[in-house]
Design a protein around this nucleic acid. Structure first.
Lengths: 94, 94
DNA sequence: TATCTAATTAGATATTTTTCTAAATAATAT
DNA sequence: ATATTATTTAGAAAAATATCTAATTAGATA
């Protein structure tokens, strides 16, 4: 699945903010866009990058496309960082 | 300290590999460079980005500059991800 | 079917990033 | 003081990224 894509996706502030919005609940592309001073096209571009990185899932409902955070990939990134940091990821009980 | 800089620094594969090398032990700029097919100048550029993101520390010793991983910033990134993921970061015991 | 709304795709541009070569610093050793 | 070694800085070129406007697609509804 590739950490390169995932970290790349996380490296942009707009995309991190989108993820934080999705933390609360799934939102349509339009709802997401309304939080930013950007065109829908640009939001779509960012959503696509998040989707490719598997950080979000999309689901069609009527005329809308709802995006949702994919927690499992977030956890995979945490594991990578945990490995970098060394130890067993549960240092406080070592 | 700024997550933007930190995530940006983590978004490059060369820089992530450098961090993984430093996980083992501090290394000089030259030793780091010898792991890559790049000029020392380019390695220096990457080290500078990691330094600005506070992901590595540097220490002079004789004619060498040794770089070391700064674990605490890695942990801060993990906390950000933990927040994104929701819950208390210790889900398995919830 | 025609039209409306939500969202994406295409193409262009500006900015940022990565990399190089060459020159400059810093510290050590002769 | 000079030369040597390790590393960084400066400046330039190539590649990737983020953004826009305009056009297109997908689905829903009249």
């Amino acid at each position: 699945m590739g950490f390169a894509e995932t970290f790349k996706a996380l490296s942009d502030p707009v995309r991190r903010e989108i993820l934080m919005l999705l933390k609360e609940k799934p939102l349509s592309a339009g709802e997401i866009g309304s939080h930013f001073e950007m065109t829908g096209a640009t939001i779509s571009y960012h959503l696509n990058i998040l989707k490719k990185a598997d950080l979000v899932t999309e689901e069609r409902e009527k005329n809308f496309i709802f995006y949702d955070l994919n927690v499992s990939v977030v956890e995979e990134v945490m594991l990578w960082l945990s490995d970098l940091r060394g130890g067993d990821g549960d240092e406080k009980r070592a």
